[in-house]
Design a protein around this nucleic acid. Structure first.
Lengths: 66, 66
DNA sequence: TTATTTTATACCCTTTATGGTATAAATAAT
DNA sequence: ATTATTTATACCATAAAGGGTATAAAATAA
C-alpha cells in the first residue's frame, strides 16, 4: 500500500475513528475514504489533501526510497 | 503555488526541459503538465506521482507548516 | 457460538479530469 | 524593434472519479 494510504489508515485508527466518522468529520465521501485507504492510486489530489489536513499534513514530494 | 507544483516546475527547468519535452518523456499529457505546474489541485494523484517519479520522488505526507 | 460493528465490493448517476488541438499570451532570442 | 520559442487559456470528446446506497464480507463484541 502507498504511504499516504497507510498514513491515513493508521492515523484514523489512532484517533479512534471509523471510516464513516472520519468521512463525516473530514467532509469526504465514505466511499472515497475507503478507496483511499485501500491504496487506490487514481484519486484526486485535493481530496487526498483534505484527508491529510485532518492530521495537519499535506501531500509533498518525498524520495521514493527511504 | 503548492509545493508539488513548484517542485516539478523547478526540477524540469533545472533539467533544461520544456513542458512539451517533459510531457513526452514522462508519458503525461502536455495539458496535464501545464495544469499541474500551475497549481491545479484537482489533478489525479497517479499522474502527479508519474511526474514526480521523473525525479525519483513521489507524493508523501508532510507537515503543512515547515 | 451468535450478534454487532466495521470494512469491502458492486451498482447507477452526475460531475469532471484528461487528452488533443487550436489560439493567445508571454518570454527569449536575434 | 521583429522573430522564434515557450507557456497559458479555451474548446470538444471520452473516460473515469466520486457520491450515494445497498449488499457482502470481515472483524470485533457479547
Amino acid at each position: 500500500m502507498n504511504t499516504i494510504a497507510a498514513f491515513i489508515k493508521n492515523k484514523r485508527k489512532e484517533a479512534g475513528l471509523t471510516q464513516e466518522e472520519f468521512a463525516i468529520r473530514s467532509g469526504l465521501g465514505l466511499r472515497f475514504v475507503r478507496e483511499l485507504e485501500q491504496g487506490k492510486e487514481t484519486v484526486r489530489m485535493d481530496k487526498v489533501n483534505q484527508a491529510l489536513a485532518m492530521f495537519g499534513m499535506q501531500a509533498v514530494p518525498g524520495r521514493m526510497d527511504e
